[in-house]
């Protein structure tokens, strides 16, 4: 008897859930791009570096984090990023929260079972259940804790490095860096255009969701919602298809013929050498210690 109402309730919650979740996602992403742009514009330590130096240095750190066989070394590498973030005017609270509260939510759930004996057998750290008949045994094991710690620490530190790179580098300069690092022109050009379209599409999608929220009074069924979603993706597509057509014409009108030209005004200074050498030395040292 209780089956039916529960089911209906669940369906309703899911219907609202998908809507609010998506709208939340869209708004958050839009705000995030604005926020990142704002920090990247500040006059901080990492902001002043050449994007190529920053990119290569970040890669060296990522590889070191990834290769290290020692939890302490990974933790040390992470702690090193904290003063860097502070010197680059990245709000500390945001920096730490973004990584350790939001990001590994997924990883946390994945790492959790690894703590326990059925998944990672070994010396018990804390025995939870130990019955002889029937044979039931559950413990948090030492290797389990080590395994979970490796995963969480590695993911968290890697994401931190990526977040730091992203928050302190303007998209434009990163594109320039990629170009001078010999990526195919077509690729970099597509990257640039995509970023621009993402912004247009995010805005359009956000508006569609907000418009629907203000218009629709009653709850809609799952099927109605799915149809609406398909139509919105379709509308987004049609709008942007026409837009992309015109954008191409506008590019052509101003001389674009399939290859792109840029004026390289990136400047490699002494600070960049210092940073690159520094991060390479730290990465190598980390690998040596954490062998």
């Amino acid at each position: 008897m209780s089956q039916i109402p529960t089911k209906a309730k669940r369906g309703r919650r899911a219907a609202r859930g998908f809507f609010e979740k998506t709208l939340g996602h869209l708004t958050e992403t839009l705000e995030h791009t604005l926020f990142a742009e704002e920090i990247a514009r500040q006059d901080g330590m990492l902001q002043s570096l050449d994007p190529r130096a920053k990119l290569l240095g970040a890669l060296a750190l990522l590889i070191a984090i990834s290769l290290s066989h020692s939890l302490l070394v990974i933790a040390a590498l992470y702690i090193l990023t904290l003063p860097l973030a502070a010197a680059s005017r990245v709000p500390m609270g945001y920096y730490i929260k973004r990584v350790w509260v939001f990001m590994p939510f997924f990883t946390g759930i994945i790492a959790l079972p690894a703590l326990f004996s059925p998944f990672t057998p070994g010396e018990p750290l804390l025995t939870l259940i130990d019955l002889t008949s029937p044979r039931v045994y559950l413990a948090i094991t030492v290797p389990g804790v080590v395994t979970a710690a490796f995963l969480l620490l590695r993911v968290g530190s890697s994401v931190s490095v990526a977040v730091l790179l992203m928050l302190t580098t303007r998209w434009v300069t990163l594109l320039k860096a990629l170009r001078t690092l010999r990526l195919p022109q077509a690729f970099v050009l597509i990257l640039g255009i995509t970023y621009r379209y993402i912004y247009v599409l995010l805005h359009a999608a956000n508006n569609m969701f907000i418009a629907r929220r203000s218009r629709v009074m009653r709850r809609m069924s799952g099927a109605e919602n799915r149809r609406w979603l398909a139509a919105s993706i379709g509308t987004l597509f049609t709008k942007s298809y026409a837009l992309s057509d015109d954008v191409y014409l506008a590019m052509q009108s101003r001389g674009f013929r399939g290859d792109s030209h840029v004026m390289g005004n990136l400047e490699w200074r002494r600070a960049d050498w210092l940073w690159l050498t520094g991060s390479l030395v730290i990465a190598t040292a980390a690998l040596w210690v954490g062998r």
Partner: peptide
């Protein structure tokens, strides 16, 4: 080029749509 960019962006946004 713009068409590929368009689909890249569309895929990016589609990945945000909870169905």
């Amino acid at each position: 080029v713009p068409l590929i960019g368009l689909f890249a962006a569309l895929s990016f946004v589609i990945m945000m749509f909870n169905v």
